[in-house]
Simulated scan of single mutants.
Amino acid sequence: MANQIYPCLWFDGQAKAAAEHYCSIFKNSKITFENHFIVNFELNGNKFMALNGGPMYKLSPGNSYVIECETQEEIDHYWDKLGEGGIYNKCGWLDDKFGVTWQIVPRILGELMADPEKAPRVMQAFMQMTKFDIQGLLDA
C-alpha cells in the first residue's frame, strides 16, 4: 500500500468548527473521524486533518490551498463562502476566518500565461484584481 500524504491544519480549539465549515462549502465532503483532539475530513475526496494543537503555532500564507475553477460562478462561490469573515487579498488569495489561506484561480490561467504574446497583458490584468474575473483575463 502506498503512503498517504495529506495536510494537517493546526488550530487553537477550532478544528471541528473549521472542518464543518469547509465541508459545508465543498461538494462531496464529509467528516470521517473526530475526537477532542483531531478531526479527519474530506473535501472533494481530498483527505485533511484538523488538529486542536493549541496557541503556539499559527497558520500562514506560506502554506496555501489552490482551488482551480472552471467557471466564474465557481470562483464567486468559493470566494464568497471561504472569504466570509476573513481577509480578501490580491490575485485571488484570501485568508478565511480560521486563518487558512486559499487561492481561488481560474483553470484557464495557466493556458493564458503559457501564451508568450498574451501573458504580459494577462499578468498585468490579474495583478489589479482581488477576485479573479475570467472575462477580464480573456479580454486582456
Rank of each mutant, 00 (worst) to 15 (best):
F48N: 00
M49T: 04
M49H: 04
M49E: 01
M49P: 01
A50T: 00
L51M: 13
L51W: 03
G53E: 00
G53C: 09
G54F: 04
G54M: 03
P55S: 15
M56D: 14
M56G: 02
L59H: 06
L59P: 01
L59E: 01
S60G: 09
S60N: 12
S60F: 11
S60L: 09
P61N: 06
G62P: 08
N63V: 13
S64I: 03
I67F: 05
I67L: 11
I67W: 02
I67E: 00
E68C: 06
C69K: 07
E70W: 07
T71R: 12
Q72A: 11
Q72N: 13
E73N: 13
E73Y: 08
E74C: 10
I75P: 01
I75V: 08
D76F: 11
D76K: 14
H77M: 10
H77S: 05
W79L: 08
D80W: 02
K81T: 15
L82A: 06
L82I: 10
L82K: 02
L82Y: 02
L82P: 00
G83E: 05
G83A: 12
G83I: 11
G86W: 05
I87V: 11
Y88H: 11
Y88I: 07
K90D: 03
C91L: 01
G92V: 05
W93C: 01
L94W: 04
D96S: 11
K97V: 10
K97D: 06
V100C: 09
T101S: 15
W102V: 01
W102E: 01
Q103N: 08
Q103V: 03
I104Q: 00
I104K: 01
V105R: 04
P106T: 02
P106G: 05
P106D: 08
P106W: 03
R107Y: 08
R107P: 01
G110N: 14
E111Y: 09
E111I: 11
L112S: 04
A114C: 09
P116H: 06
E117S: 10
K118T: 03
A119M: 15
P120W: 13
V122A: 08
V122S: 03
M123W: 02
A125C: 13
F126P: 00
M127S: 09
Q128N: 14
T130G: 04
K131L: 12
F132C: 09
F132K: 05
D133M: 06
I134M: 08
I134A: 05
I134E: 04
I134D: 02
Q135Y: 07
Q135K: 12
G136F: 09
G136D: 09
L137Q: 04
L138K: 15
D139S: 15
